[in-house]
Simulated assay, not measured.
Amino acid sequence: MKYTTEIVINLPREEVIKKLDSPENMKHWQRGLIKYEILKGTPGKEGAQMKLEYKMGKRDMVLTETILKNKFPEEFHATYDAKGVHNIQQNYFTELENGKTKWISKSEFQFAGFGMKLMGFLMPGAFKKQSLKYLTDFKNFAEKGTSVSEES
């Protein structure tokens, strides 16, 4: 399953990247993030891996992020692996007029196992909606300082 989401952030690209490229900021725009842990490599560099732990309602989820390409401020690509799911993310950041930034995120999900394949087939909109929610939460954090970690 492949799709693209995008959002315009009312900040210059350098400011967007500075806020995005900080693991400490992830809790402010990634709902359910409990903790992260560097597994190998230099954080932010190609080949680096990080474990991300989330609490989604009553469900716990663990992802492993592997950085494929870090060419900030223009682009950032990574994979995210969880049980039954391999997610490839390609992110592009374009400077717009009036100090704005367009973030284009290309997502590809590859599913293993019947259950995950069925979920991907029956609920593709849920995946796109979740991706757009992350972009929107980041926009609100970057522009207004609104943090999802302060919500109950």
Rank of each mutant, 00 (worst) to 15 (best):
V62G: 07
P23L: 12
F93G: 06
H77E: 08
G32K: 02
K129Q: 13
E150R: 04
K128L: 08
G57F: 00
Q90M: 11
I88C: 12
T146Q: 04
S149H: 05
E151L: 11
S131F: 07
T66M: 08
S105G: 13
E95L: 02
F121Q: 14
S147F: 00
F76Q: 09
I9E: 00
K35N: 09
K58Q: 09
L68T: 15
K2C: 09
E151C: 02
D60I: 12
E46G: 06
I104G: 03
S105K: 13
S22D: 10
G47L: 06
G32P: 07
F111Q: 03
D81E: 12
S105E: 14
L68P: 06
T66E: 10
F72T: 15
T64W: 04
G84Y: 04
I17S: 06
I104C: 12
N91T: 13
E74T: 15
Q89D: 13
I88F: 13
K19T: 02
D137M: 02
G47P: 04
E95A: 11
T94P: 07
N98E: 07
E24F: 11
E53I: 14
P124D: 09
N25V: 01
I17D: 11
Q90I: 15
R31L: 10
Q130D: 10
G32V: 00
Y92D: 10
T146N: 03
V62S: 09
L33D: 09
D21L: 03
K129G: 11
Y3D: 10
N91K: 02
Q130W: 08
Y54G: 02
Y80F: 13
K55C: 02
G47Q: 09
G120K: 06
T5N: 14
Y36L: 11
L118M: 13
V16C: 02
A112R: 10
T101A: 00
E108P: 02
G41D: 09
A78H: 15
T146H: 04
Q130N: 10
L20H: 08
